[in-house]
Design a protein around this nucleic acid. Structure first.
Lengths: 231, 231
DNA sequence: TTTAATAGTGTTTATTATACACTAACACTA
DNA sequence: TAGTGTTAGTGTATAATAAACACTATTAAA
């Protein structure tokens, strides 16, 4: 490689981690330990290590700051690289968004992570429609992530990442309603989702529910798969 | 900022420059002057300068390697950051795609850029559906850019960037047909595009065409504007 | 056995997309 | 100046998709 006649910007990976808790779509944020924006909530992020890809770094941030091991959905969102976004200097952020089951988060959240003193602040979940003032341009990032998440729900199977292996149709619909922020028609939703051919009925039945038991469905694949255009 | 305990990856901005020439969708590529992939066609790209954003770098590459000054459409595509994509070391590429009028390109292409000796190889246009073997992961980047370009045409006004201020409906349609790679129905196209409410008829008329003169239209705005969901 | 609660199911209407063919207006030429 | 070639411009019928809407079924609990 030619002599470097410039100074590489710093590169971070920041992840917008969505989950549903108590029927509300929430984002996981940490409190910043250092200036700038000391004490402000911020997206969990890490600097890229040598030879580490952004996706690997995002997974590392996910693991180390939230305890989420795997199973969620994670994809690149956008790269934010304005020279003004970090007062300390030029820092590029490759951003990701993740969708994970709350139960995967809660364990670590409840216990509070062991190394909370070392700059790894206690992560908390914040409702996306009541976000506090955030560090850097992180609010903008979350808003973009939310648009993308909603768009993805329309033509992919990503919702599998916040559902258990076997789920009732009503649980599926509830997840959509919470993320889109509006009620959906039961019959139309069922028709449309079935026509996507992403799920199949199983022989499982959900009992003990004080009402009519529900047939349980499962996703044909619990790997990300897309139906139409775009990536 | 904390002491940096890692080595920043190099960051480049690479741009997929689309244009239509002789009724064919083409991409502008340069021949690499150095190893690796010496002599292979590659996307025009530059390393980010200190405090330079990716978009600024992409514009710089566009200007310096193609002579395009402005007027085209340019947006971030994706960030490619596998550690294996560049054999020299970890290099992150923030990629962009551009859509520009051929006449803006051709001037410089014809003359051949003044500083062609200094690693700035003569840029050439290649049909997107007959690409040669490319350097790095640049083929993959172009394929993604093409998907994105087509998707964007569906719900934005980006096509303005390869049309003159005043244009006939048939010119508009032809641009779509070339980019999508298939014929479109004249009446349906007209109906649908008008319903998008992006253009308006003018009093201009295209004459001297050996056939019935065409009313000319113009875009209400020649700035990027989006209709629905997504960015 | 009655009640409360959620599961499950079809049809009608409106909207949007598709398929398809002829007349209009000009330039050119014989 | 009539005729021909060439592209502009227009509407309707049909198919596909989306939206609106209400009742019966099955269980647990009282």
């Amino acid at each position: 490689m030619k002599k470097i006649i410039y100074e590489s910007p710093y590169v971070t990976a920041d992840t917008v981690i969505f989950t549903i808790q108590d029927g509300v779509l929430k984002v996981l944020l940490i409190k910043r330990a250092d200036v700038p924006f000391k004490g402000s909530p911020a997206l969990p992020g890490v600097f890229l290590l040598k030879n580490e890809s952004g996706l690997e770094a995002a997974k590392r941030a996910l693991r180390s700051k939230t305890g989420v091991q795997a199973g969620g959905y994670l994809e690149q969102l956008y790269t934010f690289d304005s020279r003004f976004r970090d007062p300390r200097g030029h820092t590029i952020s490759i951003t990701y968004f993740a969708l994970v089951e709350e139960k995967n988060l809660k364990i670590r959240l409840g216990k509070n992570l062991p190394n909370r003193q070392a700059g790894i602040q206690s992560p908390k979940l914040y409702p996306v429609n009541k976000l506090p003032r955030l560090a850097f341009d992180h609010k903008e990032i979350i808003e973009l992530a939310l648009l993308r998440l909603r768009a993805k729900l329309e033509y992919t199977n990503v919702v599998y990442s916040i559902l258990q292996k076997f789920f009732a149709f009503s649980e599926l619909q509830k997840a959509y309603e919470i993320i889109f922020g509006r009620k959906l028609d039961k019959r139309n939703f069922r028709k449309k989702f079935l026509s996507l051919d992403l799920i199949r009925p199983t022989k499982q039945i959900l009992r003990g529910t004080r009402s009519r038991p529900a047939k349980l469905y499962e996703f044909k694949s619990r790997k990300p798969s897309s139906l139409k255009k775009f990536f």
